[in-house]
């Protein structure tokens, strides 16, 4: 859902903010003084209207639920420019990642591909399935025909361990 719609009737929820804070390793973001460097340089701003400065401020004011339900947090390209250039070390990227985790927790709608990836990793250890590559001359190659080593799947214990940490509260 769009953030504007979510925010229209929203009220701050400080418990949600506390929950958010417990998941973030650093509290530096409270130092944000809205200089807007992050948004001025945001890779996802022009195309998808991601405004990191707005997210930082909304989190601080307690609008965590609204952000976690919104689709805006899924527009970050993870280019890390905002982390690098923030004069107050507020790290909008890390905030967005925590919000994404919270979205998953509350079973908000998230891009399907992320959940598919979880299953793929569980099955094969890898986030992607091996592909065949068609060359410019229309020849088809795969790892085998390229004489590349076979992919070895993770040991059996991996699935249990991965499930354990995925399902942990």
């Amino acid at each position: 859902m769009g953030l504007t719609d979510l925010m229209s009737m929203a009220k701050p929820n400080m418990d949600a903010r506390e929950n958010f804070l417990s998941k973030l390793s650093s509290r530096e973001f409270v130092n944000c003084f809205q200089c807007l460097k992050c948004t001025s340089g945001c890779t996802a701003l022009k195309l998808l209207e991601l405004k990191p400065h707005e997210i930082v401020k909304l989190v601080n004011l307690g609008f965590v639920d609204e952000l976690a339900s919104s689709d805006i947090i899924w527009t970050c390209v993870t280019c890390l420019k905002c982390v690098q250039r923030c004069p107050q070390k507020a790290s909008p990227y890390h905030i967005i990642m925590v919000l994404r985790n919270m979205a998953v927790e509350k079973e908000a709608q998230i891009p399907e591909e992320y959940l598919k990836t979880v299953s793929r990793i569980l099955e094969t250890g890898l986030a992607e399935a091996p592909q065949e590559v068609t060359t410019r001359k229309m020849e088809v190659f795969d790892r085998k025909s390229l004489n590349l080593p076979k992919i070895t799947f993770p040991r059996e214990s991996f699935q249990v361990a991965f499930m354990k940490i995925m399902e942990e509260k």
Binding site: K23, W74, M97, V98, R100, N101, V104, I110, Y114, L115, T117, V118, I121, T124, G125, L126, A127, P149, I151, T152, F153, P154, R155, F158, A161, F162, I165, M166, E168
Partner: peptide
Amino acid sequence: VDLSEANCCGDPIKSVKDSAANYLANR
């Protein structure tokens, strides 16, 4: 020397569950 088993680094899982991503990376 190739590692003995395949393993996702955890990057796509960072958006889903941070601790699991950390597990994969440190694995």
